[in-house]
Amino acid sequence: MKHKAKVQEKRQHSLVRADLWLAAALLLAALAAFTVIQCFIKKEGACAVITVDGRILHRCSLNEDAEITVSGYDGGKNTIIVSNGTVYMSDADCPDRLCVRMGAVSRTGETIVCLPHRVVVEVTASGKDQDKIDGVVR
């Protein structure tokens, strides 16, 4: 009986060791991906692309200050402000308002996401085609 308990304990230890390796591997992968994204993908952005439910509504240069209100999925409203080369969500009527709390972004690949309204503001490098489609309020 005592022997059996000892075997059980030994097995448990080797299992927990495997758990720790798994955790370490996942954290390492996350850190590696994070470093790659920070160092190689994020650069000084030039353009903010606003999409709602996958459709591009606006492209605006980060150099020109603007205030844009979009109506998102489910009829929600999001107010996006471009100022001093950065873009942020100044107001939204979604339940969690996480998008407002995300703060300002300015580097390529950085995004502000409002999941309930399916609004994505993404900073991109090229600011060439700045065809403002509609609803730009200054």
């Binding site: 996958g54 995004t111 996401v113």
Partner: peptide, 10 residues
Amino acid sequence: MDSTAIIYYL
């Protein structure tokens, strides 16, 4: 949301 940029949160 049809936006691959969200992957950067992964």
